[in-house]
Design a protein around this nucleic acid. Structure first.
Lengths: 196, 196
DNA sequence: TCATAAAGATACCACTTAGTATTTTTGCAA
DNA sequence: TTGCAAAAATACTAAGTGGTATCTTTATGA
């Protein structure tokens, strides 16, 4: 049962790419099987419905990426303000998996599927909560270690920062230029300094 | 030529509502004519294509709303920091045209149509630039009047704030609760204070 | 008031959609 | 090597999709 697993993974990966670029609703199963060179029979052998595949993309593609690229970097640095800034910099500027013209996959998904599809909503909420938790923990630790003022509300700051990230991803789509990212990062640095 | 204008406006308004709730691509013309009680012949008399209608929604529904609800409030107050905070508060908490579970119409549109449709991209970009300009001007004025530090970069701050707004709209969709708005507003207040 | 164009109604088209039923091929355990 | 289930291929369906062609009704300016 090796080749079958490979087929399944190919579908998920190629489908993710298409969806990231075109959106979920406008990516048809025919599109997916055309680019994967997998037949409809094979597709429906691996996934009962299109939505089942969509949810699998979230849990098997997006979730690991979140852990590796969004959460771990927060835990490997001592100064949480640097950690957050560097994370954002790496996500926006260096990461070559994420493209400025296509925005943030999770944010795109949320925009498109919420509040209509409860399953997607739930899966995406879990993702977001994981990131929120990681960032909040980082900030709390920073308060203890004296990197951040004691009166800073960690949850509040986390939400503020994450909103900024999602928003600037949208801005990037609109302007199709990383320039906006640089502008955002400069002000993010100022904001983070104000938490010292 | 009164009744015809009314028909056209009904189509735009009802279509906007459907699109705001369901998204552009998933709102079919059949949906629109069903809820407006307008026949297909009438629809296509007023709009050559679905996209022409979509663009008309941006210029005839979204644009006036932007001017009235997003830009004017910035110009009617002397303290720009208060103006910005109050604007956000009114948009997020008081405005009953915008619903937490459906996010921000302009942001939804951007997410869905960009970068695929150049016309939509362009129209939405103009909207955004208008808001950006208004906010930047407000901040610059505040610098002159001593409400804001001279070393603050107006464009940068504008982008940071607008990103936050878009992002928290996405958060609201995800959690379907205005609680996140309140959290965001608290930190926005802190951030704005840091510009004094 | 009535001719004429604007506005709206109806039926249809070619194409795409997610999904299914049925058959065929493949890989592997015995 | 073969039996058999797992995996994949093929052909199809019913319900939509945006859009068009053609007809009928309505309003209004002379």
């Amino acid at each position: 049962m090796k080749k079958a697993e490979a087929t399944r993974l190919t579908i998920l990966q190629k489908a993710f790419e298409l969806i990231y670029v075109k959106g979920y609703q406008t990516t048809s199963i025919d599109d997916i099987i055309a680019t994967t060179q997998v037949t409809k029979g094979a597709f429906y052998y691996h996934f009962k419905t299109k939505d089942e595949m969509g949810l699998a993309i979230i849990s098997e593609i997006l979730k690991p990426t979140l852990t590796n690229s969004f959460i771990q970097p927060l835990q490997n640095e001592q100064n949480p303000l640097d950690a957050i800034y560097n994370l954002m910099h790496s996500l926006l500027i260096e990461n070559e998996f994420l493209k400025v013209e296509y925005g943030c996959p999770a944010s795109n998904f949320t925009q498109e599927m919420t509040p209509w599809n409860a399953d997607f909503n739930n899966a995406l909420n879990q993702l977001t909560q994981q990131w929120t938790k990681a960032m909040t923990t980082t900030i709390e630790k920073g308060k203890k270690n004296g990197f951040i003022r004691k009166d800073v509300n960690a949850k509040q700051v986390t939400m503020f920062i994450m909103s900024g990230y999602w928003g600037i991803r949208n801005f990037g789509k609109l302007e199709n230029s990383k320039k906006v990212y640089l502008t955002y990062l400069k002000e993010l640095k100022n904001y983070l300094s104000s938490l010292k």
